[in-house]
């Protein structure tokens, strides 16, 4: 049936799925052209970014300097290919900027950078920084009576950093219910599976024990993500934590759930197969 006759949620879900697919195609192509790493990390958060930018965040290319805009901080800055792709697809800067990602003289470096890139709030790359900055923004919003919300996307490996837990302790104490931490829990970090490097389980219980209103979702189910984030804050007076169970390398069969594709760059036949799989996705 024509899209205008569908219920709005179905329309939104379809749009989010399509945006996630576009993000993946860009991320695979960008890391291919760049010969760069971290494609698996960008593939795992495609739906999260798609839902956030399509239907949750109160920010548009026209409002990037509005003091009351929602902020998103990609604390896992190595997944920037996904973020750049999402921003370009949503009109924050030209899609052509993605072509020379990572190259000499390019605009877009290999970790999320705010300088000169519209829509990126905070430069990241070193892990464990985003949540602290987000706490400061959220606290300022509370103190000044501003309506904006602050979202930050963390990786699971990043939760090894002590600075994350300093901030996890801080936010509930100050009742920052305008703050949202999203963990892209793809279960694989740089060198090995999370459970084999430095286990995080029970991860949701840890956030709850620190005082966060915590929800868990299938991080590839756009409907579930959207419905959950529509309920922000999850509890009044508490910061919200969304643990998104994801698959590293999601969307490309041979990249899924492998340690290899944290660092490997898609080239040759692998690149072609990856693109074909993603193009065939509906």
């Amino acid at each position: 049936m024509p899209s205008s006759t569908m219920p709005p949620s179905i329309q939104t879900n379809a749009a989010c799925r399509e945006l996630a697919r576009r993000i993946r195609i860009h991320a695979v192509r960008m890391t291919h052209l760049a010969g760069s790493s971290h494609v698996g990390s960008s593939l795992s958060l495609a739906e999260l970014l798609a839902v956030l930018y399509r239907s949750i965040l109160r920010i548009t290319p026209e409002t990037i300097d509005d003091p009351d805009r929602d902020r998103l901080i990609l604390s896992k800055g190595h997944a920037c290919a996904g973020l750049y792709a999402a921003l370009a697809e949503c009109g924050f800067f030209p899609v052509e900027w993605l072509d020379d990602f990572y190259h000499d003289g390019a605009r877009l470096p290999g970790h999320a950078t705010a300088e000169g890139i519209p829509g990126i709030e905070v430069s990241s790359g070193s892990l464990g920084h985003g949540l602290g900055i987000a706490c400061g923004l959220a606290l300022a919003g509370k103190r000044d009576g501003r309506p904006f919300r602050v979202f930050t996307v963390l990786s699971d490996g990043e939760c090894d950093e002590g600075s994350i837990w300093e901030a996890v302790l801080f936010a509930p104490h100050h009742r920052l219910d305008n703050l949202v931490a999203i963990v892209d829990y793809n279960k694989i970090q740089s060198l090995d599976r999370v459970e084999d490097v430095l286990g995080l389980e029970p991860l949701a219980d840890k956030w709850r024990a620190f005082g966060w209103a915590t929800r868990e979702v299938d991080g590839h189910d756009v409907g579930q993500i959207e419905e959950t984030l529509r309920g922000l804050p999850f509890e009044p007076g508490k910061p919200s934590c969304l643990i998104a169970h994801t698959v590293k390398g999601k969307g490309v069969s041979f990249m899924e759930n492998t340690v290899l594709w944290h660092y490997r760059s898609p080239q040759g036949e692998e690149y072609q197969r990856a693109l074909e799989e993603l193009e065939a996705t509906v």
Partner: peptide, 15 residues
């Protein structure tokens, strides 16, 4: 670490 990160966040919001 959090003190300094959140100070940066407060400053980004105009403080």
């Amino acid at each position: 670490q959090n003190m300094t990160g959140l100070a940066a966040g407060l400053a980004m919001a105009g403080k």
